[in-house]
């Protein structure tokens, strides 16, 4: 199953086949990270720029490790020490970086659509590492990978996503991705933070979390995004915690072998308790571990080999 994309801008552009190809490739990459020599030469000589214009721990270091394990050279663009602070525009920044012969640019930006915009004038491969409240494709791919690893299938699974759906690019990419893979999706959270316009994806909405998690195979908790809340969408953190925090009691309603996911960073005690975050049902650190394999797969599929003609 070949993969014919130049950029990875969002899950929206991927077919089910594309997604499965990425997951399959990620599986093959997994062994590299656990062996003694954690490096293969496949992207030797390629230059990749990590352009993170919004803070990140996991995604940025995960991409950096992924690139290094494939032997690419990677530059971490540090916003605090750059001319962005002097008012240089995104376009100028990218064009200057590209003038130094970058093969790929990984972008995180506060504005939705920034990676799409960059891809319109850029020769390099563009990878979206999170744009505003729009998409975060590699997170959705690593979540799907983790679900596949634990559940061995997608069809018929009941996945519950809880929290601030409206401001969450993780939720959006995950809904698009899991929808394509054929899982049953249920959203829960404060009414002001759960959009109703998602019906075309056949998602179910249930504001009552106790009911939403009934018989769930996967519970995905989202972070309360304080930085993206314009006004209070819920009365107080205390009330949010009371209604939408994952507790042992709520968890009892889910399937016995339910897995708990969270894209991080966890607000411990708000979205879920510390105990649950480190319990054996939590796969939060597994998600982080899988992130590297999935990003290696994405980098390989985009940069490995030249522009492919549709022969053979």
């Amino acid at each position: 199953m070949p993969f014919f994309h130049k950029h990875l801008l969002g899950i929206q552009d991927l077919s089910k086949k594309d997604i499965l190809t990425i997951l399959e490739t990620a599986e093959s990459m997994e062994g590299i990270s656990t062996r003694d020599v954690k490096k293969v030469p496949v992207l030797r000589g390629k230059t990749i720029i990590n352009l993170f214009l919004e803070p990140s721990t996991r995604t940025s270091s995960s991409f950096e490790l992924a690139a290094k394990r494939l032997s690419a050279d990677i530059i971490n663009f540090n916003r605090q020490a750059s001319s962005v602070l002097k008012g240089e525009s995104l376009r100028d920044t990218v064009e200057n970086l590209e003038a130094m012969y970058a093969d790929a640019i990984i972008i995180r930006h506060t504005a939705a659509g920034a990676p799409h915009y960059v891809s319109t004038f850029c020769r390099s491969h563009i990878i979206n590492a999170g744009d505003g409240a729009h998409e975060h494709p590699t997170q959705a791919l690593l979540d799907a990978y983790t679900i596949k690893q634990k559940k061995k299938k997608f069809e018929g699974l009941k996945v519950v996503i809880v929290g601030d759906i409206l401001h969450s690019r993780v939720a959006r990419s995950n809904i698009l991705c899991l929808h394509k893979l054929g899982t049953h999706i249920i959203l829960s959270g404060p009414p002001a933070l759960v959009p109703e316009s998602l019906e075309k994806f056949k998602v179910e909405v249930n504001y009552d979390m106790d009911r939403a998690v009934e018989d769930a195979d996967v519970i995905m908790m989202l972070r309360i995004q304080k930085e993206r809340q314009q006004k209070n969408s819920y009365p107080s953190i205390r009330e949010y915690r009371f209604l939408y925090s994952l507790t042992e009691k709520k968890l009892k309603k889910a399937k016995k072998k339910v897995i708990i996911m969270h894209p991080g960073p966890v607000n411990k005690g708000v979205e879920l308790t510390s105990d649950l975050a480190s319990s054996d049902r939590s796969v939060i650190l597994k998600q982080v571990e899988n992130g590297v394999s999935v990003r290696m797969a994405v980098l390989y599929l985009l940069l490995g080999g030249k522009e492919r003609e549709a022969t053979d």
Partner: peptide, 23 residues
């Protein structure tokens, strides 16, 4: 063994190689 990741003729390949597991 899947040696795809170690090939030197990557850019000459028209067809993309799907990587399989080395076990």
């Amino acid at each position: 063994l899947d040696a795809t990741l170690y090939r030197d003729d990557f850019s000459d390949l028209n067809k993309q190689h799907i990587i399989k597991k080395t076990e």
